[in-house]
Amino acid sequence: MTTHALDAQSLKEKKRSWVLRNRFLLLRRSTQLLVLALFLAGPWAGVWIVKGTLTSSMTLNILPLSDPFLLLQTMVTGHWPELTGLIGLAIVVVSYAVFGGRLYCSWVCPMNVVTDSANWLHRKLDLKKGWQPKKHTRYWVLAMTLLVAAGSGSLAYELVNPVTLLHRGLVFGMGFAWAAVLMVFLFDTFVSRHGWCGHLCPMGAVYGLLNTKSLLRISAKNREACDDCMDCFEVCPENHVISPALRGKGDDTPLIQHRDCTSCGRCIDVCDLDVFSFTHRFDTQLIQPTSIEPGPRDPVATKAMGGHK
């Protein structure tokens, strides 16, 4: 990177406040904390809003929610859940399938905070990306957990599932669950970049499968403005999803359609040229860079005019 490019980079960052550059990260931390707070309000303050854990919960004694991966494990052992469990399952499956399957991973799951922190440290230490499992590994792991459940007749994976261990630990009592969480942190930091959420977690794999036709999508609709700074690739937990949309030419859709996209919005945060934005799956329009009237949201034009906001 040349000195000139560095200057341009710092100049771009100066124009956008820290809050703006982290707006979706802050929003996600808020929803993750909010979800946890709803579960903890009961045991800590006696205000019973949500009971149970993320595997199966009851909100205000009326809304049941059940995790699809957990109920899937139960069903492959040959046990059929009660109606409450099935209703909870249907609500979760339909909601995530419609809005965005992997919203769970980036906006709800407590492990996201751990793996994001691990990745932050990984970047600060400037480590190599390490072991990178093949792209379908998470589905192999998913199949493996279901096979063991079916073969052993018990929810074997739940004895070691770091995600449910962490959430149950926070809500009911940690025991040695912190050790499982620490293992994920160390694994993501030193062994494999984005290793857990990005390659192995079978829970995320199930939510990924729900993500194929979801409405909420991120679009690189301003891709013509991209100056190849690679910030989005650097920060995206599933960065293979970006290329088809960002590097697309002409009529190629600017939508990030890959089911692995967690809709975390981090690419929107870090992009100083406002290339990305949240939209729905039917919005395939591109922002034309050749527009004569430079609008306030047209960063290319803004940059050309010399830092005018």
């Binding site: 009961g42 019973w48 009971k51 149970g52 854990t53 595997t55 199966s56 919960s57 009851m58 059940s66 995790d67 957990l70 109920l71 494990q73 139960t74 052992t77 040959g78 046990h79 859940p81 469990g85 459940a149 007749g153 018990s154 929810l155 739940e158 449910t164 261990l165 149950r168 630990g169 809500v171 009911f172 009592g173 940690m174 025991g175 040695f176 669950a177 050790a179 499982a180």
Partner: peptide, 29 residues
């Protein structure tokens, strides 16, 4: 045997026990 295939370890029974009788087994215990 059946219990270990059916229980999703959600803790809803624990929450609805009015006498705090029930608890969830912790890892390492």
């Amino acid at each position: 045997e059946e219990f270990l295939s059916a229980c999703v370890r959600c803790g809803l029974c624990v929450r609805d026990c009015p006498y705090d009788t029930l608890k969830l087994a912790e890892l390492g215990e």
